[in-house]
Amino acid sequence: MSVQEETFLTPVVPLDFTYNYYIGQYLTRYFKGFKEKKILGSRCPGCSKVAVPPRKYCGVCNKVMEEMVELPQEGTLENFTVGHVTMEKGGRLSPAEKPYVLGLIKLDDKASLLLHKVEGVDPSQVKAGMKVKAVWKDQVEGDYWDLDHFEPA
């Protein structure tokens, strides 16, 4: 059985819903730390891993990570990618104005890797193993982008 070729109307239907997320107890503590330019994580009482940003559960140990610990502001670039595209809202790709670096940064041997922008270095010169340090906004407000980026230490 065959289906006849037809043309269809293809109207664009944006579904823009608004959501209000509660960030919960642990991320709230993270952003409180930002107000003092501190990077906080939560430590698992089982495996002593530190989650950055902090969260309630260590899924491996099924334990609540109540203890908050402060992490150093300097760390190692463990892994990175250079972006040549940006993804806009709606998942559309467009070429980036200039290449930019995203890095997974290890602040402590026990800490999870933190994904952040790495600036102040030519993307072609970035190497895994580089030492990087946190750069804060001058005015910190306890918000996502207080910790602005990392740069070579």
Partner: peptide, 18 residues
């Protein structure tokens, strides 16, 4: 939605690249 989607650093392609 309370972290990665606010930071907008991670997406399917950047994650795969890492």
């Amino acid at each position: 939605p309370i972290y990665d989607r606010q930071m907008r650093l991670l997406n399917e392609l950047s994650a795969a690249a890492l």
